[in-house]
Design a protein around this nucleic acid. Structure first.
Lengths: 224, 224
DNA sequence: ACAATAGTGTCTCTTAGACAATATCGA
DNA sequence: TCGATATTGTCTAAGAGACACTATTGT
């Protein structure tokens, strides 16, 4: 008996109201029918090339979102997590800009502060906590947070995103040096974020070769 | 149909002959009977509390090793990895000192340079590569490599381990500063590594509270 | 005493953060 | 012109690496 009930769950994260928020859906079926939980579903071996493809499918079908960034978080398993018995869930987290949720997100989906959600069914509370920790940790040394911005953004906007994630103000000069070192952004020439009663900011976007879900520069500070 | 053939595989790593080596076993059964592969096995829901427990059991039963450090690496899945069809494997990596393999390791187990092994069945070559990358990456900013040393060791020995993993010489003063910052080692007072025709080195060990498989200080350089 | 490596003090260079000057907008 | 924020230059402080000196062993 080694065939196991195998699912994928997706932690869809975005930045809203000054904090990380996770998308939750009311469950259709028992157990916990009607209760808010992570978007998830069974792996369909005939349909899904692998677990990541299953996560993409589940995310698309249940929330309407196709995420530019999707990464495996970890696999949660065991006897206690589901009242029906031993189960296994391969979990992925996605980072999307809030605008994408506005435009493409299903109405059934709701956003909830990721640091403070409690009382979710299964081990979903713990899974969200793990995702938040991963994102925070990666944000401290990588360019991951750019996926929480839209296609284009200004450096002050990006810095605000980092500051929200890390929970502390960042030095402006150091921040810009670091982003420049990453070498992943390019100015959209001629495009300025105008409107404020002050000097407009240059608008940037990811360089072409970093657009699609490309692996990030890990440990960027050491990459000289 | 969402019950899936679920296994665990363990990448047992140690440091030998100046490099990372992975333990491989000849497979008992088809497919690939008689071929060298990672120690692995089916998850037994009745017996294993979760996938990590399954990994511990498989490691113990197949190699004789109980590892002081075992961490989930990732889950590999899909249609192509096993000729029998869609499968899923939750992979863990273990770090052990070479002496433990000498004393507790089964004879059937053999060690192979982890950077250069090729041609393993399933996706085991790729899995080992992922484990090696994870260990190298973590070694650059954490105390993970202490698990490749024995219970006690000297700082020059530990530095040699780091240098082997990172593939470059390290500054002695900086290395010692960093280890001191971690605050995880204590000198075994009175114990000196004597024998060489030179000043003997102080012997250290992990502080009690860091002994058992405790979570490491991640991103240690920033921990003030 | 000498060779060899362990352990430590200190200097320098690199890098991160503070401060501040300049730039450019709307009102 | 003024207020506000963007952008850039530069000084300073903290941390990493280089160098060198002292310590302790076996021969």
């Amino acid at each position: 008996m080694s065939d196991i009930v195998s699912t994928v769950d997706v932690i869809l994260l975005t930045l809203k109201d000054g904090g990380l928020q996770a998308a939750l859906l009311r469950r259709d079926h028992e157990p916990y029918a009607g209760v808010l939980a992570l978007p998830g579903g069974y792996i369909h071996p005939e349909e899904d090339a692998d677990a990541e493809a299953a996560a993409e499918r589940v995310l698309r079908d249940k929330t309407g979102i196709v995420s530019p960034y999707l990464e495996q978080l970890a696999t949660f398993s065991g006897r206690g997590r589901d009242p029906r018995g031993w189960s296994l869930s391969v979990c992925y987290y996605a980072l999307v800009p809030p605008a994408l949720i506005e435009s493409a997100g299903r109405a059934e989906m709701s956003l909830h502060p990721a640091d403070t959600v409690r009382g979710l069914p299964f081990d979903h509370t713990r899974i969200i906590a793990a995702a938040v920790e991963r994102v925070r940790n990666k944000s401290s040394y990588s360019s991951l947070p750019v996926y929480l911005c839209g296609e284009t953004f200004t450096l002050p906007q990006l810095q605000a995103v980092y500051e929200t994630l890390l929970g502390e103000p960042l030095n402006k000069v150091s921040f810009r040096r670091k982003i420049a070192e990453f070498g992943i952004l390019e100015p959209v020439k001629g495009a300025l974020a105008t409107g404020g009663a002050h000097r407009p900011a240059q608008i940037y976007r990811l360089k072409q070769r970093f657009r699609k879900n490309l692996s990030l520069t890990d440990r960027g500070l050491n990459t000289g």
